[in-house]
């Protein structure tokens, strides 16, 4: 990060702070964010370089682009104004030029939905959403132009809707239900990468056949427990919430295993941003493309390491492609 970008982020943060202060009504904040699109080359575990398009911050110039994009946290009752600037964005040729943001799972009106096929501009727009208390949970924002390519290119990030207390502070709970309280929380964004989709453009027959080669959690491969994609340092006897966000293009099964490979129990409270009528504990959870689950597990009373992990599977017969690992120490 150079000096000018530090100054720029400071100005942006200050402006955001001012906007939030000026417009907040009865602890309902207005969150104004501007996203942009940057090209990013990533070296994969086999040494190959894959080009991604990722969401960063800023309008005039794009900084902080990551795979997946930075999580956006919105309180229940807050209003999110998410602006997309496509100035300088890498693009496909027409008819798939430009980009949008779709607030996946938000059920917003057509004008906020970011779908070009129902009239969304692909040259920049502001997308507004005011989630209610019943909507606490995990969502995504992602581009909805030529999604067969643009999702694959990396144009996605988490949106987390959080309950707030009377003073407007985020509660460390998944929903307003106190049973969903947690001590630690981490986002697990699941995605898969077929490098051929990254170089093909337009209505290419490449997009008729998906052959994923890299299997990610939150942008990292995490091919073994000793090189996990994500890590979390927790403590014993604590509650850990995981936001499981599926933007992959194959079937998958999520599990948490201890160091000897035994599957550990976790509890699902919310799916697709809606509380399950009855929370359910399990040791294995299938997650299909587009699904989100908010789960909690309790660390044991003696120190150790558990590995939340996802096995990506074929759409035809659920044969495993590969497993990607996370790591939680306590």
């Amino acid at each position: 990060m150079n000096t000018s970008s530090i100054i720029r982020s400071a100005v942006v943060s200050l402006l955001t702070l001012i906007t939030m202060t000026v417009f907040s009504v009865a602890n309902a904040a207005t969150i104004n964010l501007t996203k942009c699109v940057a090209s990013m080359n990533k070296t994969m575990s086999d040494g190959a370089s894959v080009n991604f398009w990722v969401f960063g911050s800023g309008g005039m110039s794009c900084s902080g682009g990551t795979l997946p994009a930075a999580a956006i946290e919105v309180g229940v009752g807050d209003t999110l104004n998410l602006t997309l600037s496509v100035m300088m964005a890498p693009m496909e040729p027409t008819p798939y030029n430009g980009h949008t943001i779709h607030l996946h799972g938000a059920d917003v009106s057509t004008s906020e939905d970011g779908v070009p096929d129902t009239g969304a501009s692909v040259m920049g727009d502001t997308y507004t959403w005011t989630p209610t208390a019943a909507m606490a949970g995990s969502y995504m924002y992602h581009c909805h132009v030529h999604t067969v390519k643009h999702l694959e290119m990396g144009m996605y990030g988490p949106i987390i809707i959080r309950p707030k207390d009377a003073s407007g502070n985020f509660l460390n709970q998944i929903t307003s239900n106190t049973a969903t309280a947690f001590d630690y929380v981490q986002n697990y964004v699941f995605s898969t990468v077929d490098p051929a989709y990254h170089t093909a453009t337009g209505d290419s027959t490449v997009f008729a056949d998906y052959n994923p080669k890299y299997f990610l959690i939150s942008g990292n491969e995490g091919k073994t427990t000793s090189a996990p994609a994500v890590t979390l340092a927790a403590a014993v006897n604590k509650k850990v919430a995981l936001r499981l966000i599926g933007i992959h293009s194959v079937n998958s099964t999520f599990q948490i295993k201890d160091s000897s490979g035994a599957a550990k129990s976790f509890t699902v409270y919310v799916q697709d941003g809606r509380a399950w009528p009855t929370a359910q504990s399990m040791t294995s959870l299938d997650i299909s493309p587009g699904q989100r689950f908010d789960v909690i597990f309790t660390t044991p009373s003696t120190s150790g390491t558990w590995y939340p992990q996802i096995t990506y599977k074929k759409l035809r017969d659920n044969a495993a492609y590969a497993t990607a690992y996370g790591k939680v120490t306590f």
Binding site: Y96, D107, S109, T110, S111, D113, V115, D117, T118, G119, H146, T147, V148, L151, E152, D194, Y197, D203, S204, T205, V206, F207, A208, D209, Y210, S249, V250, S288, P289, G290, L315
Partner: peptide, 23 residues
């Protein structure tokens, strides 16, 4: 529950296409 035009689509890469042609 609300006015408007919306899509329903499979969220799985190639399954949105006919031999690679989107939608």
């Amino acid at each position: 529950n609300q006015l408007g035009e919306y899509v329903m689509h499979v969220h799985t890469a190639q399954m949105e296409t006919a031999n690679g042609v989107y939608l």
